[in-house]
Amino acid sequence: MYEAVIEELNHLDGPELLAPLITDLFCGNIALVSSFGAESAVLLHMAASIDRSLPVITLDTGKLFAETIAYRAQLTRLLGLTDLRVVRPQADALRVFDGAGSLHRRDPDRCCHIRKVLPLENTLAGFKAWISGRKRYHGGLRADVPTLEQTDGRLKIDPLARFTRQQIEAYLDRYHLPRHPLLEKGYLSIGCAPCTVACGSADDPRAGRWSGLSKMECGIHRSPAPPCNSARSASDFR
């Protein structure tokens, strides 16, 4: 099934790609995953213009910027999103592996695995397709992002993969969408507060994520991390 959908729709982008997936092919079995970050308003607006009741999943790691939480509330009201699902890490997993809340300093991959990867895996279990906002111009592991791919037994959709930075900015301007408040402070890509610094450029907007480390992604767009070195694995909390 997924192969046929990919072959039929792979040439489409943006709303033209989203509409048949949301309203027909995966109606009731598709969700959008959003960080409510620097460019999130574009994809959220596209989806809301098609179906405001589309499930929107967002990960609250417990370490978000206050500005991100406020922006999430602002966009939810503005776009009329009716099914926002705020997903948090399991308390038992945090207690066992990050009781002091400092795991991000010692092992950022493990921290992301517990606070992002596992909660999202659990939440997506009931869906056949999900939408993310990756773009090729972000570079790194995203340079060749496909618009449609089959992964982990479901269809993954990146309707903005081929969009340029100029197209994103033009869309924001056209629909008068509010920018994330941290943009004016120099944050071009926004994740968890302890692991994000104010920097980046048009050529490398994600430079401020895990600055100084070889880490480039949180893990939700690649295979899960290996088990923890503990008598109990994070997978115990799935």
Rank of each mutant, 00 (worst) to 15 (best):
T82N: 09
N122T: 15
P108D: 03
T82M: 07
G28K: 02
D60T: 04
A170V: 09
A38E: 07
G191P: 13
D107Q: 12
S40M: 09
R106L: 14
P226D: 05
N122M: 14
I131N: 10
N10Q: 15
A48L: 09
L79P: 11
C199F: 04
D173N: 06
A234F: 14
P205E: 01
N10K: 15
W210I: 02
D60W: 11
R105Q: 14
L79K: 12
G219A: 09
V56Q: 00
R142Y: 06
L17E: 02
T196V: 06
A231H: 14
A48P: 01
S214Q: 06
R209Q: 03
Y171F: 04
R134K: 10
G28M: 02
E149R: 01
I30H: 03
S230V: 06
Q90S: 04
L81G: 13
L148W: 09
L44P: 11
K128P: 08
W210M: 02
D107L: 08
S49P: 11
L59Y: 05
E121D: 13
R95Y: 13
L120Y: 04
L54N: 12
A66G: 13
V86D: 02
Q150A: 15
R165D: 14
D13H: 15
L12D: 00
L12G: 07
A193C: 15
R105S: 10
L183D: 06
S211K: 00
T61H: 00
L124I: 07
P159A: 14
A41G: 13
C192Q: 12
S40Q: 07
T164S: 15
L75P: 01
P55S: 09
L141F: 10
H104V: 05
A170H: 12
L64H: 08
G153F: 04
K135Y: 00
R222M: 03
Y171P: 12
A129D: 00
A93G: 01
I22Q: 05
L44S: 06
L25K: 05
P226C: 08
S189G: 09
N122L: 15
R110N: 10
Q167I: 10
T68L: 14
L21H: 14
V5M: 08
G14Y: 09
V117P: 00
V86A: 10
I157A: 05
K215N: 07
V86M: 07
M216G: 08
A31V: 04
Y2D: 01
V117H: 04
H221M: 02
S233I: 00
F26A: 08
E16W: 07
N10W: 13
E8W: 05
D144E: 15
L177N: 01
L120T: 14
H11Y: 11
D98F: 13
I6V: 03
L183K: 11
H138A: 05
C192V: 10
G126C: 07
L12C: 13
A170I: 09
L9A: 03
N29Y: 02
L81C: 14
A19I: 03
I22W: 04
L177A: 03
T23N: 15
C112N: 01
E7T: 11
D204N: 13
L94H: 12
C218K: 07
G191V: 03
S35L: 07
L188F: 15
A207Q: 07
L75V: 01
C192E: 07
